[in-house]
């Protein structure tokens, strides 16, 4: 799963650095990060607050240009905003005048997709994410979890081969979050999409991923890459109870404690 052959990598981050300039100072958000993600792989990225995890996703999507190094997505170097990805933010970022279904279909309208096909695909996703019955609800009528499901459906509508998620469940309550984790896991297994997930939750990072990338404090470098030794079929409670899960989460907690200086 670790994708040693660069040519086959879905995402290839090669020695990137990101520096932000303000009037007098220069802040280095990312010092030097390299990372390959294999097609179909689920990679979680954890790190202390403000370490540049989200910046990494913006680099992959082309919304931000690296100060040094290069990013290659699906065999093509990233030079500007890429359209062959799906993006989910912490806030659902829905258009409040559109129903759930119409928010999902925004993706199709912006891309000029065939509307009949897009409609069919939207209905499948609505079914898959448990949004049935809420298609015509406006965003303010939906709970936080439901809104985030709509955002996920929108990100998956065009069947992107890479899905980028920036703390998608950060604003949800613990119980909803677990539920969303289980659903995301199932969706990932069903779609076979490559996923890059930035999260603050150690449990979430381990439960969902094949690999967990631990970043250091700013300027961020890769502290360690943890291979998650869990079966692909992951029942939530059973997975939590496994010794491998406990070992991995404890290890990541130690690493984060070490980088932040707490514990």
């Amino acid at each position: 799963m670790t994708g040693t052959l660069n040519a086959t990598a879905a995402v290839e981050i090669d020695n990137v650095a990101v520096r932000f300039h303000s009037k007098r100072t220069e802040v280095t958000a990312i010092e030097q990060v390299s990372l390959d993600v294999a097609p179909g792989e689920f990679v979680s990225i954890v790190g202390p607050s403000g370490c540049g995890k989200s910046t990494l996703l913006k680099l992959v999507s082309g919304l931000l240009k690296p100060s040094a190094g290069s990013v290659t997505l699906l065999g093509e170097q990233v030079r500007g905003p890429r359209h062959d990805i799906g993006f989910v933010f912490q806030r659902a970022a829905l258009l409040e005048w559109r129903s759930a279904r119409k928010n999902i279909l925004l993706q199709a309208e912006m891309r000029g997709m065939n509307s009949a096909e897009a409609g069919k695909r939207a209905d499948e996703l609505i079914e898959m994410t448990g949004l049935s019955g809420f298609e015509n609800a406006l965003p303010h009528e939906l709970s936080g979890g439901m809104q985030q499901r709509v955002a996920l459906c929108r990100a998956l509508l065009h069947q992107p081969r890479v899905l980028l998620m920036d703390e998608p469940f950060g604003a949800l309550d613990a119980l909803t979050r677990e539920q969303m984790n289980v659903e995301l896991h199932r969706v990932w297994r069903e779609t076979g999409t490559t996923v890059l997930l930035v999260t603050h939750s150690i449990a979430e990072s381990v439960y969902l991923a094949n690999r967990v990338i631990v970043l250091t404090q700013r300027p961020a470098v890769v502290k360690e890459v943890i291979e998650v030794d869990l079966p692909d079929e992951r029942d939530y409670s059973a997975t939590m109870a496994r010794p491998e899960f406990a070992t991995a989460t404890a290890h990541i907690r130690d690493l984060l404690g070490a980088v932040t200086g707490h514990d």
């Binding site: 933010f89 912006m110 891309r111």
Partner: peptide
């Protein structure tokens, strides 16, 4: 708006 940029409209 960032999302719109990734949608390529």
């Amino acid at each position: 708006l960032e999302l719109a940029a990734t949608m390529g409209g």
